[in-house]
Structure formats: structure tokens, C-alpha cells
Amino acid sequence: MNCGYKEKIILYFYGELPERSAAGIKRHIDACASCAGELAVLKELTAQFEIFKPEPPLLSAAGQAFAAREPGFWETALAGFKAAALAGAFTAAFLLAFRFMGAHKSADAVWNNDINSNLDSIEYGIYSLEDDMLYSPSADFDYSCAGIEAQRQRIAEKTT
């Protein structure tokens, strides 16, 4: 049985009803055990979810590189990134990728031309670096990281 207030109780709880209807809703809640019970459940559920704060994963370098590989991404983003280059930024994708690798300190090269032609090699580097992180001892990882960094430097030199 529905007293006709069920939906209104929900909207009331979330503050989606106009102020003027609040008094009527409150009166109904006092009189209707069913609505009072459901409101109590909603409050309790909400309180429980308030304290549930799982830590989101880091956005992975591979994911960012994947975004970069999609047609249309660079056309959309690069116009902006050329302006960002003046401030020393790469691209959001590479900022995130290098931050992920802990190499953001040196991510200050200025890119402007030929960025597309250099993407694949960097992208491959990031992919293999992730593989190294998963499957190799840390010495290999450091070596790969240095390799990527050297590669990035070379590209930066070529393009500035």
C-alpha cells in the first residue's frame, strides 16, 4: 500500500522539494509509520555511505597513453597544450604519466613542433616501463626510467 507520499519523502530528504511543502511532509512522517521507517532507512544508509571512502587508483600511464593514441585527442588538446608549453607543461597526459613514474621533476621541457611524430616511441616506452614495474627487479626499472627520460630529452632537443 502506498500512502502517496513515498516519492515526496525521498525528494524531501535530498532537499529537492520547495520549502513550503516541508511542513506538510513532516506532519505526514509523524503520522505514517511506513514513511517514517523508509526515511530512517534512507538516513542510515546515507550515513553509512558517507564514511565509505575507498581510495581511487592512480590513473595509469598506459591509460593516459591510450587516450593520447585515440584519434581526435591531440587535435582537441594540442591547441591548448601549445599554449601550455610556454609555461613548461607537456600535456596533461604526460604530466600524469611522468608523475606516475615519479619523474615529474624533470618534466619541464618545452614541446611545440613534431609532437605527433614522437608520440609512438614515448607511448611504447611507457607501456614497456609499466611491464618492467610489474615483472622486473627495481634495477631494471631504474634503467628503463632513465632510458625514457633520455629519450624524452632527445625529443625535447629535436623539437625546441
Binding site: K53, A79, G80, A89, A92
Partner: peptide, 22 residues
Amino acid sequence: FKEGDAGALDELISRYKGPLYA
């Protein structure tokens, strides 16, 4: 972000990553 502020994307992501992930 579209005008070149890469940090704006970071801010946008940090605003929503918690609720989105949950």
C-alpha cells in the same frame, strides 16, 4: 584546460575521482 591549463584537468579529476570510484 582547453585553453592550455593542464592543471585544470588535475583539479577536475581530483574533484570527482573519489565519488566516481566509490
